[in-house]
Structures are given as structure tokens and as C-alpha cells.
Amino acid sequence: MDKIPILRLGAYLLVSIQVDLYDRLALTLEADLVQMVNKTGAKGVLIDISAVSIVDSFMGRIIGNIASMSKILDAETVVVGMQPAVAITLIELGLPLKGVHTALDMEKGMNLLKTMIGDSSGEEDQETDPDYDDTIA
């Protein structure tokens, strides 16, 4: 069966979805990712969906679930590279993905993660602008 690889990079986990997700694959990803967060003690999860062109309400929910689960395990989730059509679809489906952080591309997503984790651990990057919050409130 297909599997989506989860890469570990320091305190972060990287997931790049290169195929169109079908339901079973999404569920496997959800389970694997939570396992990995738990095992590695990752502080941040970066999900790249720039190659995903089709979503449905189930997919939207899975992404939301992953974010909530990671949050419980003390890891922030950032979804990067969403296609315009995907964004419009999710909005039309009434899924604004509350609680999920988003960024335009991998680089910006990584910066956002660093800022957020730096903020929460209180060790580095104290100059962060308090107004700069990409959370979908």
C-alpha cells in the first residue's frame, strides 16, 4: 500500500504530499504522523500540499485533525503551498481550517514554525512582533 513519507529535520517533521490523497491514504498519514510526533518529540509539523489539486470535506477534516492532534502532543502544524483552487474549495465547503497555521511556501512555513516555537520555549527570537500572528483565529 502507498505511504506518504514523513521526514525528520531536527525538531521538525516534514511531510510533502505529492499525490492526490484518497481517504485511506489520508487516514494512514494521520496515524503515522501522530506516531512520529510522539516518537520523535517533534515541536513542529510542516505539511506541503502544493501538489494537491483536489480536496474534499474529508481531506479538510483530516488536515484539521492532524493539527489538533499535534497540538495536544505539543507540536505546531503549518500547512504550506495551498493551491488557490483548493483554498476556494475549502472555503466553499465551509472549512476555514481553524487552528491550522498556513504559509505560502516551505521557506515561509519554516520561518513561521521557528518563530512560533521560539516564542513558546522563550529561548530565542524575542524580537518577534506580537502582531505577526498567522493563526487562523
Binding site: 503551498g81 495551498m82 483554498a87 476555514p96 498556513t102
Partner: peptide, 13 residues
């Protein structure tokens, strides 16, 4: 509101 939400999903403010 829809437009704003979609923009946020893309990762922009």
C-alpha cells in the same frame, strides 16, 4: 469574509 478566509488558507494575511 470568504475572500479573507481563502487568503489565510493560502498562508497570506
Amino acid at each position: 469574509i470568504k475572500t479573507v478566509s481563502a487568503t489565510r488558507l493560502m498562508g497570506a494575511e
